[in-house]
């Protein structure tokens, strides 16, 4: 699978150096960042022209304030900025440019309901739909909306990777609160979905990809009970997981937690043979990262 996956990605690199969500689509930050990591993980000089072009695309698409949009014409987003930081952290990019990005992320925050909103809710006597601590702030997908698990996980990972370059006090404060936010959103019994454990008392179930991402972001708390319980959930879920995206993130996460992923790698091979991951760039990149030592690029 590995050789074919690499070929697919190399063939689908756009002339501008980036990758789209699928072959032939406009380059975007998420796909390009993950492919850059995947190709770099191969530690193969043959990949250098492709990775240099990808780095250049990321440099060119960075906004002057340090942020990255998802794609051309879109507004800057914390999650795409975090992915670009993760991808470029070990590259030859100027540290000053990444520091600007890190500070931009630190200036972003998920929104929370104002006092008036809370008051109206209290007076409406409505049954509370979700039970989460909305005072805990992480990062949102888009400005002026709520904090969710996936963007917060990317931002945590990026900040933990570059914390020595940023204000220690600010990073510590944001990281601690964001970690609390993720733990607060954990599903009953462990694991995470997009960010609600239950709605109107009905528990929602964890997703393997998001559980893996949250655990990757929280890897420096591996002894915590929530991590251990969620790790068990991930291992259990991985037994029946059947998609490149979920198997890819699960493999990277479980490697970071020193688990054996040989079975997951086999399943990634089988799945790629059957569906080619729908031709989607992201799971193909993740499968390359999972196939070798790529998981080390997510270590903090």
């Amino acid at each position: 699978m590995l050789d074919e996956a690499i070929k697919v990605l190399k063939r689908s690199q756009n002339s501008d150096g980036g990758w789209g969500a699928i072959s032939g689509k406009q380059s975007n930050t998420e796909s390009t960042a993950l492919v850059l990591l995947a190709l770099r993980s191969l530690d193969d000089s043959v990949q250098k022209p492709a990775t240099e072009k990808a780095e250049q695309w990321l440099r060119n698409s960075q906004n002057s304030d340090g942020s990255w949009p998802y794609g051309a014409g879109a507004k800057a987003a914390s999650w795409s900025t975090a992915l670009a930081i993760i991808a470029l952290h070990d590259s030859s990019i100027d540290v000053e440019r990444l520091v600007r990005s890190g500070n931009w992320i630190l200036a972003q925050a998920g929104s929370k309901p104002g006092i008036l909103t809370k008051l109206i809710l209290a007076l409406s006597f409505q049954k509370k739909a979700v039970h989460l601590n909305d005072d805990l702030i992480g990062w949102s997908w888009t400005p002026e909306s709520f904090s969710w698990v996936e963007p917060t996980s990317y931002c945590l990972l990026a900040l933990k990777k570059m914390k020595s370059w940023l204000s220690a006090t600010t990073v510590k404060e944001r990281v601690e609160q964001a970690e609390l936010m993720i733990y607060d959103r954990m599903c009953e019994g462990g694991g995470w979905n997009y960010g609600n454990a239950a709605v109107y008392g009905d528990p929602l179930w964890p997703y393997p990809d998001i559980t893996a991402l949250a655990l990757i972001a929280l890897q420096d708390h591996r002894e915590r009970n929530q991590n251990q319980v969620s790790l068990e959930v991930l291992e259990k879920t991985a037994e029946t997981t059947n998609s490149g995206l979920a198997l890819g993130w699960s493999s990277i996460c479980l490697s970071l937690y020193d688990r054996d992923i040989s079975e997951l790698r086999k399943r990634l091979d089988q799945r790629f043979a059957r569906t080619k991951f729908l031709g989607e760039t992201k799971p193909i990149a993740l499968s390359i990262l999972a196939a070798g030592e790529g998981w080390r690029l997510f270590r903090v």
Binding site: A21, N28, E30, Y70, G71, A74, K75, S111, S140, W141, T142, E144, S145, F146, W148, E150, P151, Y194
Partner: peptide, 14 residues
């Protein structure tokens, strides 16, 4: 598009 508005299309909820 979720890539712009997030999941679960939260910007629209707000």
């Amino acid at each position: 598009p979720g890539a712009i508005y997030g999941w679960p299309k939260n910007a629209l909820h707000w």
